[in-house]
Computed example of a mutant assay.
Amino acid sequence: MELRSKLEDDDELKEAVLLKVGDTTVKWNDFFYETENFSKCYKYLLSKGDKTKYGFYSKHPICIKGHIQNTKDLTEKYSAFAIDLRAPHIKIENKMNVPAISLHTQNTDLIRQIEEYRTENGEYPEIAAYCIMRAKDPHNTSTKSYLNMKGNVYRTSQLIIIQNL
């Protein structure tokens, strides 16, 4: 988040910054996405390679920032929890595109920390999470197109809770 704050108002510097993540080199503009750019993130992830046998496109390092919509206990079926982010609905032609970002974790301490930051009226906090993301082809209904993205969070150091001021 410190790097993000230094780059926030410097478009020239944003273009110049390259991050080395394992064997992958990523431009800053292809790494960090806020809520209003979730659709852009989806398109970028789809461009990163071929579809796997499980229907996902190639994995790619991403930092995603947004408000949590909810957490779900998936432990009976998957031994994990899901952290779903709120996303804007974007109308394209006669259909709403809905980016659907789900971060999965088995880290119960992380879920406990998130729950501790819920407001009195039950609202979840804003977060920034670094993870290896992947995307699936859209799930279409007659009125909506869900742009499905999934990432895994293994350690608490991969997620920052941004306190509401």
Rank of each mutant, 00 (worst) to 15 (best):
K59Y: 09
P61A: 07
K53G: 08
T71K: 09
K51N: 01
K53M: 06
P61N: 09
I68R: 11
T52C: 01
K65E: 14
C41S: 14
K27S: 10
K53L: 03
F31D: 06
E36L: 11
K48C: 06
S58K: 01
E34K: 13
T71A: 00
N29R: 09
I62C: 13
H67N: 12
V26F: 05
V21T: 10
K59C: 08
V26T: 09
T52F: 03
Y54R: 10
K72S: 08
L46D: 02
F31S: 05
S47E: 07
P61R: 06
V21Y: 09
T52Y: 04
N37W: 03
C63M: 15
F32K: 03
F31Y: 13
S47C: 00
C63W: 04
F56C: 05
T24Y: 10
G66A: 01
F56R: 11
F32N: 08
T35D: 09
H60S: 12
S47T: 00
Y57M: 05
V26N: 06
V26E: 11
C41V: 09
Y44F: 14
F32G: 04
K65S: 11
T25H: 10
V21E: 15
H60R: 12
T52E: 06
T24C: 13
L46P: 01
E36M: 05
S39C: 06
K48Q: 14
K48D: 00
L45D: 07
K40D: 14
L45F: 04
Y33C: 11
Y42F: 10
Y54G: 12
P61K: 09
C41Q: 12
K27N: 07
Y33W: 12
